[in-house]
Design a protein around this nucleic acid. Sequence first.
DNA 1: GAGTAGGTTAACAGGGAGTTAATGGGGGAA
DNA 2: TTCCCCCATTAACTCCCTGTTAACCTACTC
Lengths: 226, 226
Amino acid sequence: MNQTPLNVLLVEDDRDLAASVADYLLLERISCDHAYNGQAGLTLASENPYDVILLDLMLPRMDGLAVCEKLRAQGVDTPILMLTARDTLDDKVAGFDAGTDDYLVKPFALEELVVRVMALSKRRSGQMQKLQVADLEMDLQSKSATRAGKPLKLTPTGWTLLETLMRASPAVVSRQELEHSVWPDEVPDTNSLKVHMYNLRQQVDKPFEHNLIHTLSGRGFVLKEE
Amino acid sequence: MNQTPLNVLLVEDDRDLAASVADYLLLERISCDHAYNGQAGLTLASENPYDVILLDLMLPRMDGLAVCEKLRAQGVDTPILMLTARDTLDDKVAGFDAGTDDYLVKPFALEELVVRVMALSKRRSGQMQKLQVADLEMDLQSKSATRAGKPLKLTPTGWTLLETLMRASPAVVSRQELEHSVWPDEVPDTNSLKVHMYNLRQQVDKPFEHNLIHTLSGRGFVLKEE
DNA sequence: GAGTAGGTTAACAGGGAGTTAATGGGGGAA
DNA sequence: TTCCCCCATTAACTCCCTGTTAACCTACTC
């Protein structure tokens, strides 16, 4: 149920296509920002941490290759999937040279797009696949978590909460943010989060001497040592 | 056999060298795709069935050894010929460790390269491959699998499932991925996968003390020790 | 000390996962 | 050809994990 929601940027000037892509991605729990020209795409991509960038090759104001090159020049290493009508090897080479990670030739099946996006986001997370705070570790690949070497038994929801807390650490995460991470669509108006946090603490803190999950009344939760 | 035109991937950032290599190979009826950085090479190599991959050791975006390791981790068994300026024994060892099949030290004669490519493409059919996780081994060549030395009786479907799990290990494989590996076209909407997993476990885990196949509720299955 | 935010507990429902057994097709052996 | 065995598929059933909810308790804040 709860895969970490992906967040992609779609840079595409054909609004009909963009809309249908966005709709389809949403069905797969991939949320999608739009830019309708290269300049806008560049700005959005520079300022937000997307999981993947979908970049049309032919764009008004700045073509896809240029956007890609500038992003790489800025040190943005978000995986880029180039969408194009062309399909010669030369174009692919030019694209890869500019720093794109994958290619998809129009017209493409939306399922195919989803598969590529998943693959790219996974590849990237494969570079940084471990989260660690104090003696608490999460291996995103094998979906296993340990504290002080002892494996933790986490439910899917518990996993999502802990991942959110670890990614944010040592920053505070508000109740609202946590709720949003577990229920992207509609947050239940009950005490569900409280129960999940309780159960999570039973796993993460209860068996150990020092607590890592701390409550900041009215502000949220932090995961950190001390 | 060598009437069939060979198709190789050249991953090399020196464009002049790449071009001359490609030209020469073409004379020998060897067609040649280019990638100018490691990342691009990895993508092309993952997605296309080349006969041989020519891999420069020093590459932008991802060095040759890393590319090689990632490919092998993905289960790509295409023969890899490493091209390098260095010639120390250490490098060779590291290369073979990463899964390369042969070495060529720059500068090399183009005739020499052709000979190696031919040799590698021929060797491929007879190439041995083994997968191993803990005391579980799969010999892809002889299609036989053993755990703790004891042979396992696997059905074709069981074999496919186990191979998928072993290639991914220690990463989690979702139900969806497993289904896709067994039924590429149309996934049955029944509990077929459950039964196959059950039967697989009867072979792989039941007769042994420690289980290797673990269920992560809502997330999929992992094959790993502990 | 009142009011509110957070924590604890237990009951419940639903569904995902495991198990078993019956069916039927395909391929090899006789 | 016929028979038989292996294997995939399917349904039916059980089990138990997980999420949800309410009710109650505690601790903090003002």
